[in-house]
Design a protein around this nucleic acid. Structure first.
Lengths: 219, 219
DNA sequence: CGCGTTATTGAAGTCCATCAATGGCTGTGG
DNA sequence: CCACAGCCATTGATGGACTTCAATAACGCG
C-alpha cells in the first residue's frame, strides 16, 4: 500500500497483543473490528454442535481477519503463539474506502487469494487421503516457516498435533502415525515434536499429489 | 446495482449460451474473461493428478465466476444444464472500476460471501460424516431449488449422483446408499432419481448438525 | 517430585470405498 | 416396434483406511 494510505490506516489503528490461547473473537460475535496480523500466528476455527472442530486457516504476518460483509464473524480466531495485531473499526475502514478507493482494490485482491487457498483446502479435505494431506501440509509449512540448508528444510511448527488434525480433517493419532511413518521412511526427521526437518522435499511433493501411494522405508 | 452501472456493464457484455457438459473454461487457462450466470447451473471443479475430482461449488443465477486476481483460472467451469452467461473482459471491468468505484465494493461483498460458503464447505468436508453431508446438501438444494407445499419441500436436483459425490467428498455409491436410507426412513421421497421431496426437513436439520447419528425407519 | 498437557504407539472396531452385478431409462438403428 | 447399446442409479459383498479406545512416554511447570 502507499505511504499515505498506510498512515491514514495508522490513525485508525490500535495495537493488540495476545498470549497463546487467547481469543481474538468468537464465531457469531458482532464483527465490529477488522485485524491485520503484525507477527505471530492465528488459527481460524468453526465448532460443530457436537463439539467437533474444524480449523479453516492459519494466519500470519500481513494477513487480514474479520474481513466480512456480514454483521457477525463466521469463525472464531485465537492466537497460537504470542501475537501482535492491528485492530481497526469497520466504520473507520468504510470511511477510508471513500477517501482511498484503491484500498478496496487491495482488499478485493486479498479476498481473491483467500478464496484460492480455501479451494485448495477443499480439495485436500475432499479428495486426499491421510498421507497426502500430511505431505501437502508439511510443504505448506515449509513455504511459510522453512529455512533451507544444504537440501534439507528446517522448520518450527508452532501448532499442536491437534491443530494439525483439525485443519486436515483427521485425528491427532492419524497425524502422529503418519509423521512417524515419514520419519521411519527417512523423508523427515523429528528432533522434537514441533521441530521438523524435511530431508526429501521431492518425495513429499510426489506424495502430496497422490503419485506414490505406497511409501516404503529407505534401504 | 444501479441502472447506470448495469447499462455500463451491458455495453461490455457478450451473451454466451452453453449446453449441458460444455466447458466455460479449464483450470489454468488464462483468465481473460469474467462471467455472470444469467440462468442455468455451473459446476466449478478441480482435478487431481491421479484423476480424482473435487467440485468446489455450484453457481446459479446472479453468481460471478472467474473473479480472480491471478492470471489463470484456479478451477474448471462446466455447464450442468442449458446455461446462459454474460461474458465481459477483465480489462473492461478494470476500466469500469475507475468510473464506478461502488462496483468494486459490490464485488468485495460477493467475494466475502463466497468465502463464507467455502468455509462451510470446508467444515462439511473435514468434520461431517456421510449422512451429515447428505443432509446438509439436501437442505442447501432445498434453499436454492425447493418449493414448499403443505410442509413438504419439492425440488429438482439438476446434477448427477457423481456431481453430488464429488462435491461432498464421497463416492456415488455412498450418496446413493444414504439417499436410499433417507427414503426408507420416510424423511425424503425419490419419485425419480433427480426429483427429491423432503418430507421432514426438521429431521434433516438435526442430521446436518450431527445431533442424531442413528436414524431408524419410521414406525 | 508429581501433576497436567502433549505426543506416540498398539489393538480393535467402524464407516466408507472398492469391486461387482443388476435394473431402469434414452436414444438409435434394424 | 423391438433390440441393443450406453449411461445412470441402486444394491450387495468385501476390504481397508481411519477412528476410537487405551496405555505409555515425554515434557514443562508448580
Amino acid at each position: 500500500m502507499s505511504g499515505e494510505e498506510l498512515s491514514a490506516l495508522g490513525r485508525l489503528t490500535t495495537e493488540v497483543n495476545l498470549e497463546p490461547g487467547q481469543i481474538v473473537f468468537r464465531e457469531a460475535d458482532e464483527s465490529s473490528f477488522l485485524f491485520n496480523v503484525v507477527r505471530g500466528l492465528i488459527r481460524l476455527s468453526k465448532l460443530l454442535p457436537n463439539g467437533k472442530r474444524q480449523i479453516t486457516g492459519f494466519l500470519y504476518h500481513g494477513d487480514f481477519l474479520g474481513l466480512t460483509i456480514a454483521g457477525n464473524y463466521p469463525y472464531s480466531a485465537e492466537a497460537i503463539v504470542p501475537t501482535q495485531l492491528c485492530r481497526f473499526s469497520r466504520s473507520g475502514l468504510m470511511q477510508l474506502f471513500e477517501e482511498y478507493p484503491k484500498l478496496e482494490h487491495r482488499l478485493l485482491a486479498l479476498a481473491s487469494n483467500e478464496l484460492i487457498e480455501a479451494q485448495e483446502h477443499i480439495v485436500l479435505l475432499g479428495r486426499k487421503n491421510a498421507s497426502e494431506k500430511i505431505a501437502t501440509f508439511l510443504l505448506m509449512l515449509s513455504r511459510r516457516f522453512g529455512s533451507t540448508t544444504d537440501g534439507t528444510i528446517s522448520l518450527d511448527a508452532p501448532m499442536s498435533r491437534e491443530d494439525m488434525a483439525d485443519y486436515l480433517g483427521l485425528t491427532v493419532e492419524s497425524v502422529s502415525r503418519n509423521l512417524s511413518q515419514l520419519r521411519r521412511s527417512r523423508i523427515i526427521r523429528l528432533p522434537e515434536p514441533r521441530h521438523i526437518e524435511i530431508l526429501k522435499p521431492e518425495r513429499l511433493e510426489e506424495m502430496a499429489e497422490g503419485v506414490d501411494p505406497n511409501l516404503r522405508p529407505a534401504a
